[in-house]
Amino acid sequence: MPDASDAAIVTTGLTKTYGSVTAVAGLSMAVPRGEVFGFLGPNGAGKTTAVKLLLGLARPTSGSATVLGARAGDASARRRIGYLPELFRYQVWLTAYEVLVLHCRLARIPTSRTRAEVERALVTVGLAERAHDRVGTFSKGMQQRLGLGVALLGNPEVVFLDEPTSALDPVGRKDVRDIIRNLRDRGMTVFLNSHLLGEVEQVCDRVAVVHHGSVIASGQLDALLSDSGVRVRVDGLGAATGKLQRFGELHRDGDWISVDGVALETVPDLVAEIVALGGRVYAVEPRHQSLEDRFMELLGGES
C-alpha cells in the first residue's frame, strides 16, 4: 500500500450499511496522487456507494475518509474535485453550454475564465457542435459526454468517474480512455469506477477489486496479474497428462492445456516431458493472465 501522506484519497475502515445490506464494508485504502485508480467490482459491489461517501453525498455508518487532506465532503475538498455521477439527466431545458456555465459559477470559476473553460470542456468531450442544443434533445451517450465535461471544469485535482463509458459507443470509449490518459499526463488523480475490465486494464495504474463491499485484491496492475504461465496445444497424451502436474496447475480446454505458474526457464523441460510422454506438440504460447481471468478467479474464490 502506498504511503498515505501523499495520497489523494485515504479511507480508514469506511463502512456504509443500508438496513441489513452492507454496501461498503470496512474499506481501507489509499489512492496516490497523479494516478489513475480503477475501482473494480461486479454489480452491487459497493462502488457507487464508496464514491458517494468520498464526496460527502452519503454519510458513513462508521470509519472515515479524506480527500485531498480534507474530511470527505468538506467544502475545501469539493472546490478541487470533479464528479461524473453514474445515473443522471442534467437539466433538459438548458443547452449544454448553459449547463457548463452553471457549473462554472457553482465551482466559483472567475467569470473572465468561464467562456474559455466551457469551450475547452466542449471540445474535449466532442460536443462543440451541439453546444447550443437543449440537453433534452441529446442521446444518452451525448449526455454522458456532457457529464464528463462538467466533471472536468476548472482543472480539478481529483476526478471521480462512475462508469463514464456505460452509454458510449466504441469510438466514445476510446475517446474517454484518451481523455483519462491525458488527465493523468496533466497530473490529475482519476478515481474510475468500472466493471469494464478491458477499459481498466488499458488506463489504470492501480486497481482495487471490491466484492460485497470489501477490497479482495489491490495493487499495481502488473503485480496483480500473474504472467507466469504457458499454453500448449497437444494431442496423444491421454491419461499421461496428469504427470505434468509437477510443473504447475493444469487446465484443459480441448486440445489446449494451460499450465499456470511455470517459470519461463522451465518451459523447455515441460515440452521435453510432453514429448517423452508421447505427446505431439503443435503450439506453445506464453500466457499473460488477463484482468478478466484474474477477476473471475478472485470472485470465484470469494463466493
Partner: peptide, 14 residues
C-alpha cells in the same frame, strides 16, 4: 431523481 442534485452538491455549495 435526475441526479442534478448529486452533481451540484459536490460543488462548494452548502
Amino acid at each position: 431523481e435526475s441526479g442534478v442534485a448529486a452533481a451540484v452538491l459536490t460543488r462548494p455549495i452548502r
